[in-house]
C-alpha cells in the first residue's frame, strides 16, 4: 500500500471541504440575491438545486441531449420555475410581512418537492461526470475532475454576478432596490420587475449548483431542504446581503464539516459547523462580513 501521510489527509479534507462548500456558497448567493431585493429568505432555494440536478438528468442522461445543450436548457427551465414562484406565491400576497413571505416560500418548497416526487419518483439519479471519472493525484490528495467543475462554476458565477451588478443598468437598479426600495421606486425603477428578476437569477444559480453537484452526490427529490439549510447557515455566517460573505460562509461551513468528519467525529460533523456558526453570531451578530448599520435599517 502506498504511503498516505497525515499531511496528505489534511489536504484531502481541505479539497473535499472546499468542493462541498462551493455548493453551499452557490445556494447562499442565491439566498442573497433575493434577500437584497425583498428581505425574504427564500426557503425554496434548495428546491432549485434539486430541480437543476433532476432536470439535467432527464435531459442529458435520459433524453440524450449533449451536455452543452442540456445545461442551458436546464438553467432556463429552472429559471422559469423561479419566475413562477414569484408570480404564484410571492406577488399575490396582499399584506406581505416578512414572516408570511417566508411561510409562502416554505409552502412553495413543499409543493415543488411533492411535484418532483410525482415526476421522478423517490429514487436517486446519477449524472455522468462532465469530464470523466478518472481521479487526479495532486500533492498526495485524490481529486475528482468534477470537483474542478463545481469550484470553477462558483468562480464563473461570482465573476458574472459582479459584472452584472457593477456594469449593467439593470444590475445597478437591482442594487438600488436593495439599498432603498422606496427611493428606487421613486427613481422610476419597477420594483416588481426587480423582484421577479431576483427570483430568476437565484433560481438559475441554484440550477447550476444542482447540475454540477449531481455527478458527485447523486440527486433525489428530497435533497433540497438540507441544502437550503446549509446555504442559509452559510449566508448568515457570512453576513446577510454580502456576496463575499456568502462565499466565505459556504466555504467555511464545508471545510469545517470535512475536517470535523475526518479529525474528530463524523456523527457530529454537522453539529461542529453549527456550533462555530453560533459562536460567530454571538460575537458578530451580523455575521463575518455583514454590516451592522445595514442590518439595523432592514426590517428583518
Amino acid at each position: 500500500m502506498e504511503e498516505f501521510s497525515f499531511a496528505n489527509q489534511l489536504f484531502q479534507y481541505l479539497i473535499t471541504g472546499l468542493t462541498v462548500g462551493s455548493v453551499y456558497a452557490m445556494v447562499a448567493i442565491g439566498f442573497n440575491i433575493i434577500y437584497n431585493v425583498t428581505e425574504i429568505i427564500n426557503l425554496a432555494q434548495g428546491e432549485f438545486v434539486m430541480l437543476g440536478g433532476l432536470i439535467m438528468v432527464f435531459l442529458h442522461a435520459v433524453a440524450g441531449l449533449p451536455l452543452i445543450l442540456a445545461f442551458p436548457i436546464t438553467v432556463i427551465l429552472v429559471t422559469l420555475v423561479g419566475m413562477l414562484l414569484d408570480r404564484l406565491a410571492i406577488r399575490p400576497i396582499r399584506q406581505p410581512s416578512v414572516l408570511t413571505l417566508i411561510i409562502a416560500t416554505i409552502a412553495a418548497s413543499i409543493i415543488i418537492k411533492g411535484t418532483a416526487m410525482f415526476i421522478w419518483g423517490k429514487d436517486p439519479f446519477d449524472l455522468p461526470a462532465f469530464s470523466g471519472r478518472t481521479p487526479i493525484n495532486f500533492l498526495g490528495a485524490v481529486i475528482q475532475p468534477q470537483y474542478f467543475w463545481v469550484i470553477g462554476f462558483l468562480i464563473v458565477t461570482v465573476i458574472l454576478l459582479t459584472l452584472f451588478f457593477e456594469k449593467t443598468i439593470i444590475g445597478k437598479a437591482m442594487s438600488a432596490c436593495a439599498d432603498n426600495p422606496d427611493a428606487a421606486s421613486l427613481m422610476g425603477i419597477n420594483v416588481k420587475w426587480m423582484i421577479l428578476l431576483s427570483f430568476s437569477l437565484s433560481a438559475a444559480i441554484g440550477a447550476v449548483a444542482g447540475i454540477t453537484v449531481t455527478p458527485i452526490s447523486l440527486m433525489e427529490y428530497d435533497r433540497g431542504a438540507m441544502l437550503a439549510i446549509k446555504g442559509f447557515g452559510a449566508v448568515v455566517l457570512g453576513g446577510l446581503g454580502s456576496f463575499p460573505g456568502a462565499i466565505l460562509g459556504g466555504l467555511i461551513l464545508g471545510t469545517i464539516e470535512s475536517f470535523g468528519a475526518g479529525l474528530i467525529s463524523s456523527g457530529y460533523k454537522d453539529a461542529f459547523a453549527l456550533i462555530v456558526l453560533l459562536a460567530v453570531l454571538f460575537f458578530r451578530p451580523s455575521g463575518l462580513l455583514g454590516s451592522v448599520e445595514i442590518s439595523k435599517i432592514k426590517r428583518f
Binding site: 456550533i275 456558526l277 453560533l278
Partner: peptide
C-alpha cells in the same frame, strides 16, 4: 440577534 440571524441561530 435580529430577524433571520435569530431564525438561523434557533434553527442551528
Amino acid at each position: 440577534l435580529r430577524g433571520h440571524y435569530l431564525a438561523m441561530a434557533t434553527l442551528a
